[in-house]
Simulated assay, not measured.
Amino acid sequence: MGLTDYQALLIDCDEVLVDRDSGVWAALQPLLDSRGGQPDKERVLAEYNEVVRALYPRFGELGFSGLLCFAHRQLAERWGLKASWEEGMSFARSAAGWSLFEDAPGAMLYLRKFYRLLVKGDRDAEDRGLLCERLGIVADDFISLASDPLKDPDWLLANDLELAGILLVTRPSASDAADTDVCLICRGRRQQPTQCATAYCINSMADLVAQHQLSLRR
Score class of each variant (00 low, 15 high):
A27P: 07
D33E: 08
A178P: 10
A210V: 07
F142E: 00
R93Y: 13
R53N: 13
L3K: 07
V119L: 06
C183Q: 04
A146E: 13
V51Y: 07
F101Q: 01
L9V: 00
I185Y: 01
V182M: 04
A92R: 06
A27H: 09
D21F: 06
A174F: 14
D141I: 11
L145C: 10
L55T: 07
L10K: 02
I166A: 01
G106E: 12
L32V: 03
G129I: 14
A177K: 15
A177V: 01
R189P: 05
R35K: 11
W85G: 07
D5C: 12
A8Y: 08
S94Q: 08
M89G: 03
S204R: 03
A206G: 06
P149L: 05
F64P: 00
L135T: 02
V138W: 14
G23A: 08
I143W: 00
R218H: 15
R116N: 04
G66H: 08
L208H: 01
W155K: 07
V52L: 05
R53F: 06
A146R: 14
E162D: 14
P153H: 11
A46C: 08
L17P: 05
E50I: 01
G136H: 02
A46L: 09
G66R: 04
L157M: 10
S204A: 05
G23T: 10
A96E: 15
C186Y: 13
Y200Q: 03
R53V: 09
